[in-house]
Write a protein that binds this DNA or RNA. Sequence first.
DNA 1: CGTCATATTGATGGGCATCAATATATGTGG
DNA 2: CCACATATATTGATGCCCATCAATATGACG
Lengths: 236, 236
Amino acid sequence: MQVGEHGAMQEAILETIRQLPHFSGLAESTLRRLADASRILRPATGSLIIHEGEPCRAFFAVRQGAVRVFRVTPDGRMQILHRLGPGRSFAEAAVLNMSSYPASAEAIEDGTEVVEIGAATFLALFDTDRSMARIMLTSLCCWLRDLVSRVEELSVLSAGARLARHLLDLPARETDEGLEIVFPTSKKEIAERLGITPETLSRQLRRWQDREVIISKRDRVVLLKPDTLLTIAAES
Amino acid sequence: MQVGEHGAMQEAILETIRQLPHFSGLAESTLRRLADASRILRPATGSLIIHEGEPCRAFFAVRQGAVRVFRVTPDGRMQILHRLGPGRSFAEAAVLNMSSYPASAEAIEDGTEVVEIGAATFLALFDTDRSMARIMLTSLCCWLRDLVSRVEELSVLSAGARLARHLLDLPARETDEGLEIVFPTSKKEIAERLGITPETLSRQLRRWQDREVIISKRDRVVLLKPDTLLTIAAES
DNA sequence: CGTCATATTGATGGGCATCAATATATGTGG
DNA sequence: CCACATATATTGATGCCCATCAATATGACG
Protein backbone atom coordinates (compact mmCIF):
# COMPACT_ATOMS: atom_id res chain seq x y z
CA MET A 1 0.00 0.00 0.00
CA GLN A 2 1.32 3.42 -0.91
CA VAL A 3 1.90 6.24 1.50
CA GLY A 4 -0.53 8.53 -0.23
CA GLU A 5 -3.24 5.97 -0.13
CA HIS A 6 -2.48 5.26 3.46
CA GLY A 7 -2.91 8.90 4.33
CA ALA A 8 -6.18 9.07 2.47
CA MET A 9 -7.39 5.97 4.21
CA GLN A 10 -6.42 7.46 7.57
CA GLU A 11 -8.49 10.50 6.74
CA ALA A 12 -11.44 8.34 5.82
CA ILE A 13 -11.13 6.42 9.06
CA LEU A 14 -10.79 9.60 11.07
CA GLU A 15 -13.86 11.06 9.47
CA THR A 16 -15.85 8.00 10.44
CA ILE A 17 -14.75 7.55 14.03
CA ARG A 18 -14.87 11.26 14.80
CA GLN A 19 -18.61 11.13 14.25
CA LEU A 20 -19.17 8.24 16.62
CA PRO A 21 -21.00 9.37 19.74
CA HIS A 22 -18.40 7.54 21.79
CA PHE A 23 -15.50 9.50 20.40
CA SER A 24 -16.85 12.93 19.67
CA GLY A 25 -14.97 15.28 21.95
CA LEU A 26 -11.74 13.33 22.04
CA ALA A 27 -8.53 15.17 21.27
CA GLU A 28 -7.35 15.04 17.67
CA SER A 29 -4.17 13.26 18.77
CA THR A 30 -6.19 10.54 20.45
CA LEU A 31 -8.35 10.12 17.39
CA ARG A 32 -5.25 9.75 15.25
CA ARG A 33 -3.88 7.03 17.46
CA LEU A 34 -7.17 5.21 17.22
CA ALA A 35 -7.19 5.65 13.46
CA ASP A 36 -3.69 4.20 13.30
CA ALA A 37 -5.01 1.10 15.00
CA SER A 38 -7.85 0.84 12.54
CA ARG A 39 -8.45 -0.30 8.99
CA ILE A 40 -11.28 -0.39 6.55
CA LEU A 41 -12.92 -3.69 5.72
CA ARG A 42 -15.03 -4.26 2.63
CA PRO A 43 -16.85 -7.47 3.39
CA ALA A 44 -18.79 -9.12 0.58
CA THR A 45 -22.52 -9.30 1.06
CA GLY A 46 -23.31 -12.21 3.33
CA SER A 47 -19.77 -12.66 4.63
CA LEU A 48 -19.24 -12.62 8.35
CA ILE A 49 -17.43 -9.71 9.99
CA ILE A 50 -17.40 -11.23 13.46
CA HIS A 51 -18.23 -14.70 14.69
CA GLU A 52 -20.19 -15.38 17.83
CA GLY A 53 -17.97 -16.90 20.51
CA GLU A 54 -14.65 -15.76 19.07
CA PRO A 55 -12.40 -13.74 21.33
CA CYS A 56 -12.90 -10.11 20.50
CA ARG A 57 -10.06 -8.28 18.84
CA ALA A 58 -11.87 -5.16 17.65
CA PHE A 59 -15.08 -3.25 17.45
CA PHE A 60 -16.57 -1.70 14.37
CA ALA A 61 -18.15 1.36 12.82
CA VAL A 62 -20.24 1.17 9.66
CA ARG A 63 -19.14 3.60 6.95
CA GLN A 64 -21.35 2.53 4.08
CA GLY A 65 -23.97 -0.07 3.38
CA ALA A 66 -25.54 -2.06 6.18
CA VAL A 67 -24.71 -4.76 8.67
CA ARG A 68 -26.88 -7.07 10.65
CA VAL A 69 -25.98 -8.46 14.04
CA PHE A 70 -27.54 -11.81 14.84
CA ARG A 71 -27.39 -14.97 16.86
CA VAL A 72 -28.24 -18.48 15.90
CA THR A 73 -30.79 -19.96 18.26
CA PRO A 74 -30.38 -23.51 19.61
CA ASP A 75 -32.86 -24.78 17.04
CA GLY A 76 -30.79 -23.30 14.24
CA ARG A 77 -32.84 -20.21 13.39
CA MET A 78 -31.26 -16.82 12.93
CA GLN A 79 -32.38 -14.18 15.40
CA ILE A 80 -31.61 -10.69 14.19
CA LEU A 81 -30.53 -8.41 17.00
CA HIS A 82 -29.85 -5.20 15.08
CA ARG A 83 -29.60 -3.74 11.64
CA LEU A 84 -26.98 -1.04 11.46
CA GLY A 85 -26.48 1.66 8.85
CA PRO A 86 -23.75 4.25 8.29
CA GLY A 87 -22.56 5.99 11.44
CA ARG A 88 -23.53 3.14 13.75
CA SER A 89 -21.09 0.97 15.62
CA PHE A 90 -21.17 -2.46 17.17
CA ALA A 91 -19.27 -4.77 19.52
CA GLU A 92 -18.07 -1.91 21.74
CA ALA A 93 -19.51 -3.64 24.77
CA ALA A 94 -17.59 -6.82 24.02
CA VAL A 95 -14.38 -4.81 23.79
CA LEU A 96 -15.01 -2.99 27.05
CA ASN A 97 -15.75 -6.28 28.80
CA MET A 98 -12.82 -7.96 27.10
CA SER A 99 -15.15 -10.86 26.49
CA SER A 100 -15.80 -12.89 23.39
CA TYR A 101 -18.31 -11.73 20.82
CA PRO A 102 -21.84 -12.45 22.03
CA ALA A 103 -23.21 -12.45 18.48
CA SER A 104 -22.20 -12.59 14.84
CA ALA A 105 -22.36 -9.83 12.26
CA GLU A 106 -22.49 -9.85 8.47
CA ALA A 107 -22.72 -7.32 5.68
CA ILE A 108 -26.14 -7.29 4.03
CA GLU A 109 -25.54 -4.81 1.23
CA ASP A 110 -23.11 -4.62 -1.63
CA GLY A 111 -20.39 -2.05 -1.17
CA THR A 112 -20.54 -2.20 2.60
CA GLU A 113 -17.55 -0.60 4.30
CA VAL A 114 -16.71 -1.06 7.95
CA VAL A 115 -13.98 0.50 10.07
CA GLU A 116 -12.33 -2.01 12.35
CA ILE A 117 -10.91 -0.43 15.50
CA GLY A 118 -8.37 -2.61 17.25
CA ALA A 119 -9.36 -3.58 20.77
CA ALA A 120 -5.85 -3.75 22.18
CA THR A 121 -4.89 -0.24 21.14
CA PHE A 122 -8.21 1.15 22.23
CA LEU A 123 -8.02 -0.43 25.67
CA ALA A 124 -4.39 0.61 26.09
CA LEU A 125 -5.30 4.21 25.29
CA PHE A 126 -8.33 3.99 27.50
CA ASP A 127 -6.35 2.78 30.50
CA THR A 128 -3.47 5.17 29.93
CA ASP A 129 -5.29 8.38 29.21
CA ARG A 130 -7.29 9.16 32.30
CA SER A 131 -9.29 11.88 30.60
CA MET A 132 -10.47 9.56 27.86
CA ALA A 133 -13.02 7.77 29.99
CA ARG A 134 -14.43 11.05 31.21
CA ILE A 135 -14.69 12.52 27.76
CA MET A 136 -16.36 9.44 26.39
CA LEU A 137 -18.81 9.34 29.25
CA THR A 138 -19.58 13.02 28.89
CA SER A 139 -20.27 12.61 25.22
CA LEU A 140 -22.47 9.57 25.72
CA CYS A 141 -24.41 11.33 28.48
CA CYS A 142 -25.21 14.20 26.15
CA TRP A 143 -26.26 11.88 23.35
CA LEU A 144 -28.37 9.91 25.73
CA ARG A 145 -30.15 13.00 26.95
CA ASP A 146 -30.77 14.14 23.43
CA LEU A 147 -32.09 10.77 22.30
CA VAL A 148 -34.39 10.39 25.28
CA SER A 149 -35.88 13.77 24.43
CA ARG A 150 -36.34 12.77 20.84
CA VAL A 151 -38.06 9.53 21.77
CA GLU A 152 -40.44 11.43 24.00
CA GLU A 153 -41.10 14.02 21.35
CA LEU A 154 -41.62 11.52 18.56
CA SER A 155 -44.12 9.56 20.59
CA VAL A 156 -46.08 12.47 22.02
CA LEU A 157 -45.72 15.64 20.00
CA SER A 158 -47.29 16.57 16.69
CA ALA A 159 -45.17 17.36 13.68
CA GLY A 160 -45.79 21.07 14.17
CA ALA A 161 -44.75 21.01 17.81
CA ARG A 162 -41.60 19.08 16.99
CA LEU A 163 -40.68 21.54 14.28
CA ALA A 164 -41.36 24.52 16.55
CA ARG A 165 -39.09 23.04 19.20
CA HIS A 166 -36.40 22.37 16.67
CA LEU A 167 -36.52 25.93 15.36
CA LEU A 168 -36.25 27.31 18.89
CA ASP A 169 -33.24 25.05 19.54
CA LEU A 170 -31.36 26.24 16.47
CA PRO A 171 -28.81 29.03 16.82
CA ALA A 172 -30.44 32.33 15.94
CA ARG A 173 -29.23 35.84 15.20
CA GLU A 174 -30.99 39.06 16.16
CA THR A 175 -32.07 41.21 13.24
CA ASP A 176 -34.34 44.20 13.00
CA GLU A 177 -37.18 41.95 11.81
CA GLY A 178 -36.76 39.25 14.44
CA LEU A 179 -34.67 36.18 15.18
CA GLU A 180 -33.05 34.91 12.01
CA ILE A 181 -32.21 31.25 11.68
CA VAL A 182 -30.10 29.94 8.83
CA PHE A 183 -30.68 26.25 8.32
CA PRO A 184 -27.46 24.33 8.88
CA THR A 185 -28.60 21.48 6.62
CA SER A 186 -31.07 20.83 3.83
CA LYS A 187 -34.74 20.79 4.69
CA LYS A 188 -34.83 17.18 3.66
CA GLU A 189 -32.42 16.35 6.45
CA ILE A 190 -34.26 18.47 8.97
CA ALA A 191 -37.47 16.68 8.10
CA GLU A 192 -35.79 13.32 8.47
CA ARG A 193 -34.40 14.26 11.84
CA LEU A 194 -37.85 15.27 13.03
CA GLY A 195 -39.47 12.15 11.67
CA ILE A 196 -41.65 13.97 9.15
CA THR A 197 -41.66 14.35 5.36
CA PRO A 198 -40.21 17.36 3.55
CA GLU A 199 -43.70 18.14 2.30
CA THR A 200 -45.10 18.40 5.78
CA LEU A 201 -42.21 20.65 6.77
CA SER A 202 -42.82 22.91 3.83
CA ARG A 203 -46.54 23.12 4.51
CA GLN A 204 -46.04 23.85 8.19
CA LEU A 205 -43.66 26.71 7.47
CA ARG A 206 -46.15 28.03 4.90
CA ARG A 207 -48.97 27.94 7.45
CA TRP A 208 -46.93 29.86 9.98
CA GLN A 209 -45.90 32.35 7.35
CA ASP A 210 -49.56 32.92 6.44
CA ARG A 211 -50.26 33.54 10.12
CA GLU A 212 -47.30 35.94 10.16
CA VAL A 213 -45.50 33.98 12.86
CA ILE A 214 -42.42 33.57 10.70
CA ILE A 215 -40.98 34.62 7.38
CA SER A 216 -39.83 31.61 5.43
CA LYS A 217 -37.13 32.06 2.83
CA ARG A 218 -35.36 29.34 0.95
CA ASP A 219 -32.64 28.43 3.41
CA ARG A 220 -33.60 30.52 6.40
CA VAL A 221 -36.51 31.68 8.52
CA VAL A 222 -37.12 34.79 10.58
CA LEU A 223 -39.10 34.29 13.74
CA LEU A 224 -41.51 37.20 14.03
CA LYS A 225 -43.35 35.88 17.09
CA PRO A 226 -41.11 33.48 19.01
CA ASP A 227 -43.67 33.39 21.82
CA THR A 228 -46.29 31.94 19.52
CA LEU A 229 -43.82 29.24 18.54
CA LEU A 230 -43.12 28.59 22.20
CA THR A 231 -46.81 28.01 22.76
CA ILE A 232 -47.01 25.66 19.81
CA ALA A 233 -43.92 23.82 21.03
CA ALA A 234 -45.47 23.30 24.43
CA GLU A 235 -48.83 21.91 23.36
CA SER A 236 -49.95 18.69 21.74
CA MET B 1 -32.17 11.86 61.79
CA GLN B 2 -32.70 8.38 63.18
CA VAL B 3 -30.84 5.30 62.10
CA GLY B 4 -33.95 3.53 60.91
CA GLU B 5 -34.92 6.47 58.77
CA HIS B 6 -31.43 6.70 57.46
CA GLY B 7 -31.55 3.08 56.34
CA ALA B 8 -34.87 3.61 54.61
CA MET B 9 -33.55 6.68 52.87
CA GLN B 10 -30.50 4.75 51.70
CA GLU B 11 -32.79 2.17 50.19
CA ALA B 12 -34.79 4.85 48.45
CA ILE B 13 -31.62 6.40 47.05
CA LEU B 14 -30.30 3.02 45.95
CA GLU B 15 -33.52 2.25 44.17
CA THR B 16 -33.27 5.49 42.26
CA ILE B 17 -29.63 5.42 41.22
CA ARG B 18 -29.70 1.73 40.36
CA GLN B 19 -32.13 2.53 37.59
CA LEU B 20 -29.98 5.24 36.07
CA PRO B 21 -28.56 4.16 32.73
CA HIS B 22 -25.16 5.32 33.92
CA PHE B 23 -25.08 3.05 36.92
CA SER B 24 -26.99 -0.04 35.88
CA GLY B 25 -24.50 -2.86 35.97
CA LEU B 26 -22.34 -1.47 38.77
CA ALA B 27 -21.56 -3.73 41.69
CA GLU B 28 -23.89 -3.48 44.66
CA SER B 29 -21.01 -2.36 46.85
CA THR B 30 -20.23 0.50 44.49
CA LEU B 31 -23.85 1.56 44.42
CA ARG B 32 -23.90 1.59 48.21
CA ARG B 33 -20.88 3.84 48.37
CA LEU B 34 -22.54 6.19 45.94
CA ALA B 35 -25.73 6.10 47.95
CA ASP B 36 -23.76 6.95 51.08
CA ALA B 37 -22.53 10.07 49.31
CA SER B 38 -26.06 11.02 48.34
CA ARG B 39 -29.09 12.55 49.90
CA ILE B 40 -32.66 13.31 48.92
CA LEU B 41 -33.66 16.91 48.32
CA ARG B 42 -37.25 18.11 48.33
CA PRO B 43 -37.07 21.49 46.68
CA ALA B 44 -40.15 23.67 46.79
CA THR B 45 -41.72 24.42 43.42
CA GLY B 46 -39.76 27.21 41.80
CA SER B 47 -36.74 26.95 44.05
CA LEU B 48 -33.36 26.49 42.43
CA ILE B 49 -31.54 23.18 42.75
CA ILE B 50 -28.39 24.36 41.00
CA HIS B 51 -27.23 27.82 39.97
CA GLU B 52 -25.57 28.51 36.66
CA GLY B 53 -21.91 29.39 37.16
CA GLU B 54 -21.52 27.85 40.60
CA PRO B 55 -18.77 25.28 41.03
CA CYS B 56 -20.33 21.88 40.73
CA ARG B 57 -20.50 19.78 43.83
CA ALA B 58 -22.96 17.11 42.73
CA PHE B 59 -25.16 15.77 40.01
CA PHE B 60 -28.77 14.77 40.35
CA ALA B 61 -31.42 12.19 39.62
CA VAL B 62 -35.12 13.00 39.65
CA ARG B 63 -37.18 10.67 41.85
CA GLN B 64 -40.55 12.36 41.69
CA GLY B 65 -42.10 15.40 40.14
CA ALA B 66 -40.29 17.36 37.47
CA VAL B 67 -37.33 19.65 37.01
CA ARG B 68 -36.45 22.11 34.33
CA VAL B 69 -32.94 23.02 33.33
CA PHE B 70 -32.56 26.50 31.89
CA ARG B 71 -30.27 29.39 31.21
CA VAL B 72 -30.95 33.06 31.36
CA THR B 73 -30.09 34.73 28.08
CA PRO B 74 -28.17 38.02 28.02
CA ASP B 75 -31.40 39.92 27.51
CA GLY B 76 -32.90 38.37 30.61
CA ARG B 77 -35.19 35.77 29.09
CA MET B 78 -35.29 32.21 30.33
CA GLN B 79 -34.30 29.60 27.80
CA ILE B 80 -35.48 26.15 28.79
CA LEU B 81 -32.95 23.48 27.92
CA HIS B 82 -34.70 20.39 29.26
CA ARG B 83 -37.68 19.20 31.22
CA LEU B 84 -36.88 16.13 33.25
CA GLY B 85 -39.22 13.64 34.87
CA PRO B 86 -38.66 10.69 37.21
CA GLY B 87 -35.70 8.49 36.31
CA ARG B 88 -33.83 11.25 34.49
CA SER B 89 -30.60 12.79 35.67
CA PHE B 90 -28.79 16.04 35.05
CA ALA B 91 -25.45 17.78 35.52
CA GLU B 92 -23.44 14.57 35.03
CA ALA B 93 -21.41 16.24 32.33
CA ALA B 94 -20.47 19.12 34.63
CA VAL B 95 -19.28 16.63 37.22
CA LEU B 96 -17.22 14.65 34.72
CA ASN B 97 -15.63 17.84 33.47
CA MET B 98 -15.17 19.15 36.99
CA SER B 99 -16.45 22.45 35.65
CA SER B 100 -19.03 24.83 37.01
CA TYR B 101 -22.68 24.34 36.23
CA PRO B 102 -23.45 25.54 32.71
CA ALA B 103 -27.12 26.10 33.54
CA SER B 104 -29.57 26.39 36.40
CA ALA B 105 -32.26 23.92 37.43
CA GLU B 106 -35.46 24.30 39.42
CA ALA B 107 -38.32 22.11 40.55
CA ILE B 108 -41.51 22.78 38.62
CA GLU B 109 -43.93 20.51 40.45
CA ASP B 110 -45.03 20.20 44.03
CA GLY B 111 -43.63 17.17 45.79
CA THR B 112 -40.56 17.00 43.60
CA GLU B 113 -37.83 14.78 44.99
CA VAL B 114 -34.28 14.76 43.72
CA VAL B 115 -31.32 12.58 44.66
CA GLU B 116 -28.12 14.58 45.00
CA ILE B 117 -25.02 12.50 44.29
CA GLY B 118 -21.84 14.06 45.62
CA ALA B 119 -19.29 14.85 42.93
CA ALA B 120 -16.20 14.32 45.09
CA THR B 121 -17.15 10.82 46.14
CA PHE B 122 -18.26 9.88 42.68
CA LEU B 123 -15.05 11.08 41.06
CA ALA B 124 -12.92 9.43 43.75
CA LEU B 125 -14.67 6.12 43.12
CA PHE B 126 -14.42 6.64 39.40
CA ASP B 127 -10.69 7.22 39.50
CA THR B 128 -10.01 4.44 41.99
CA ASP B 129 -12.14 1.67 40.59
CA ARG B 130 -10.80 0.94 37.16
CA SER B 131 -13.73 -1.24 36.19
CA MET B 132 -16.23 1.51 36.93
CA ALA B 133 -15.53 3.49 33.79
CA ARG B 134 -15.84 0.39 31.64
CA ILE B 135 -19.06 -0.71 33.21
CA MET B 136 -20.58 2.73 32.87
CA LEU B 137 -19.49 2.98 29.26
CA THR B 138 -20.84 -0.46 28.49
CA SER B 139 -24.17 0.39 29.97
CA LEU B 140 -24.40 3.69 28.15
CA CYS B 141 -23.44 2.07 24.86
CA CYS B 142 -26.30 -0.39 25.22
CA TRP B 143 -28.78 2.35 26.08
CA LEU B 144 -27.56 4.38 23.19
CA ARG B 145 -28.06 1.55 20.78
CA ASP B 146 -31.51 0.90 22.12
CA LEU B 147 -32.53 4.53 21.93
CA VAL B 148 -31.21 4.99 18.42
CA SER B 149 -33.28 2.02 17.34
CA ARG B 150 -36.35 3.43 19.01
CA VAL B 151 -35.92 6.79 17.34
CA GLU B 152 -35.62 5.11 13.96
CA GLU B 153 -38.61 2.92 14.61
CA LEU B 154 -40.79 5.74 15.88
CA SER B 155 -40.04 7.86 12.87
CA VAL B 156 -40.46 5.27 10.12
CA LEU B 157 -42.36 2.22 11.30
CA SER B 158 -46.12 1.86 11.63
CA ALA B 159 -47.72 1.07 14.95
CA GLY B 160 -48.26 -2.53 13.85
CA ALA B 161 -44.65 -3.01 12.85
CA ARG B 162 -43.42 -1.54 16.11
CA LEU B 163 -45.68 -3.81 18.11
CA ALA B 164 -44.61 -6.87 16.12
CA ARG B 165 -40.96 -6.06 16.79
CA HIS B 166 -41.62 -5.57 20.43
CA LEU B 167 -43.41 -8.88 20.74
CA LEU B 168 -40.55 -10.67 19.03
CA ASP B 169 -38.10 -9.01 21.42
CA LEU B 170 -39.97 -10.12 24.52
CA PRO B 171 -38.89 -13.29 26.31
CA ALA B 172 -41.02 -16.18 25.11
CA ARG B 173 -41.64 -19.73 26.24
CA GLU B 174 -42.26 -22.71 23.99
CA THR B 175 -45.65 -24.34 24.44
CA ASP B 176 -47.53 -26.91 22.41
CA GLU B 177 -49.57 -24.13 20.80
CA GLY B 178 -46.67 -21.82 19.99
CA LEU B 179 -44.44 -19.21 21.61
CA GLU B 180 -46.10 -17.88 24.73
CA ILE B 181 -45.31 -14.38 25.91
CA VAL B 182 -46.45 -13.12 29.29
CA PHE B 183 -46.53 -9.36 29.35
CA PRO B 184 -44.11 -8.04 31.95
CA THR B 185 -46.08 -4.82 32.38
CA SER B 186 -49.56 -3.49 31.80
CA LYS B 187 -50.66 -2.97 28.23
CA LYS B 188 -50.96 0.70 28.98
CA GLU B 189 -47.23 0.83 29.63
CA ILE B 190 -46.39 -1.22 26.58
CA ALA B 191 -48.42 1.13 24.45
CA GLU B 192 -46.69 4.11 25.97
CA ARG B 193 -43.28 2.62 25.31
CA LEU B 194 -44.22 2.03 21.68
CA GLY B 195 -45.64 5.52 21.28
CA ILE B 196 -49.19 4.33 20.58
CA THR B 197 -52.46 4.38 22.50
CA PRO B 198 -53.79 1.38 24.44
CA GLU B 199 -56.76 1.32 22.07
CA THR B 200 -54.55 0.89 19.03
CA LEU B 201 -52.65 -1.88 20.77
CA SER B 202 -55.86 -3.69 21.62
CA ARG B 203 -57.18 -3.38 18.09
CA GLN B 204 -53.93 -4.58 16.54
CA LEU B 205 -53.85 -7.69 18.70
CA ARG B 206 -57.50 -8.32 17.82
CA ARG B 207 -56.76 -8.05 14.12
CA TRP B 208 -53.92 -10.54 14.36
CA GLN B 209 -56.05 -12.87 16.42
CA ASP B 210 -58.76 -12.75 13.73
CA ARG B 211 -56.10 -13.64 11.18
CA GLU B 212 -54.99 -16.46 13.50
CA VAL B 213 -51.47 -15.10 13.77
CA ILE B 214 -51.68 -14.95 17.55
CA ILE B 215 -53.95 -15.84 20.42
CA SER B 216 -54.51 -12.87 22.65
CA LYS B 217 -55.40 -13.44 26.27
CA ARG B 218 -55.64 -10.85 28.96
CA ASP B 219 -52.04 -10.66 30.09
CA ARG B 220 -50.35 -12.89 27.55
CA VAL B 221 -50.23 -13.79 23.89
CA VAL B 222 -49.34 -16.97 22.05
CA LEU B 223 -47.56 -16.51 18.74
CA LEU B 224 -49.02 -19.03 16.31
CA LYS B 225 -47.13 -17.77 13.28
CA PRO B 226 -43.95 -15.97 14.34
CA ASP B 227 -42.85 -15.78 10.72
CA THR B 228 -45.85 -13.69 9.81
CA LEU B 229 -44.99 -11.32 12.63
CA LEU B 230 -41.41 -11.19 11.36
CA THR B 231 -42.71 -10.09 7.98
CA ILE B 232 -44.90 -7.44 9.55
CA ALA B 233 -41.99 -6.24 11.66
CA ALA B 234 -39.81 -5.84 8.60
CA GLU B 235 -42.16 -3.80 6.44
CA SER B 236 -43.53 -0.29 6.63
C1' DC C 1 -28.80 26.51 -21.18
C1' DG C 2 -29.96 21.91 -19.92
C1' DT C 3 -29.67 18.74 -16.17
C1' DC C 4 -30.34 17.39 -11.69
C1' DA C 5 -31.38 17.82 -6.73
C1' DT C 6 -34.13 20.36 -3.70
C1' DA C 7 -38.49 22.80 -2.54
C1' DT C 8 -43.05 23.96 -2.92
C1' DT C 9 -47.95 23.15 -3.69
C1' DG C 10 -52.16 20.34 -4.55
C1' DA C 11 -55.29 16.18 -4.17
C1' DT C 12 -56.25 12.04 -1.90
C1' DG C 13 -56.53 8.33 1.39
C1' DG C 14 -55.35 5.73 5.48
C1' DG C 15 -53.59 5.20 9.95
C1' DC C 16 -54.15 6.32 14.30
C1' DA C 17 -55.86 9.43 18.02
C1' DT C 18 -59.85 10.91 20.23
C1' DC C 19 -64.15 10.46 22.50
C1' DA C 20 -67.40 7.45 24.44
C1' DA C 21 -69.51 3.20 26.15
C1' DT C 22 -69.01 -1.29 27.96
C1' DA C 23 -66.63 -5.13 29.99
C1' DT C 24 -63.43 -7.28 32.94
C1' DA C 25 -60.11 -7.28 36.95
C1' DT C 26 -58.48 -5.71 41.28
C1' DG C 27 -59.18 -4.12 45.62
C1' DT C 28 -61.90 -2.24 49.73
C1' DG C 29 -64.92 -2.11 53.49
C1' DG C 30 -69.29 -3.52 55.40
C1' DC D 1 -69.24 -13.04 50.53
C1' DC D 2 -71.12 -9.41 48.21
C1' DA D 3 -71.61 -4.57 46.79
C1' DC D 4 -69.06 -0.86 45.51
C1' DA D 5 -65.36 1.75 43.63
C1' DT D 6 -61.43 2.06 40.78
C1' DA D 7 -58.15 0.81 37.25
C1' DT D 8 -57.41 -1.62 33.10
C1' DA D 9 -59.11 -3.60 28.55
C1' DT D 10 -61.90 -4.01 24.84
C1' DT D 11 -64.81 -2.32 21.11
C1' DG D 12 -67.15 1.16 18.19
C1' DA D 13 -67.78 5.75 15.70
C1' DT D 14 -65.64 9.76 14.02
C1' DG D 15 -62.32 12.95 12.39
C1' DC D 16 -57.84 14.84 11.57
C1' DC D 17 -53.07 14.74 10.89
C1' DC D 18 -49.83 13.44 7.96
C1' DA D 19 -47.87 10.28 4.31
C1' DT D 20 -48.25 9.38 -0.40
C1' DC D 21 -48.43 10.37 -5.15
C1' DA D 22 -48.02 13.75 -8.60
C1' DA D 23 -46.92 18.12 -10.84
C1' DT D 24 -44.46 22.29 -10.87
C1' DA D 25 -41.03 25.59 -9.40
C1' DT D 26 -36.64 27.07 -8.02
C1' DG D 27 -32.21 26.90 -7.46
C1' DA D 28 -27.15 24.74 -8.12
C1' DC D 29 -23.71 23.49 -11.32
C1' DG D 30 -21.23 21.95 -15.26
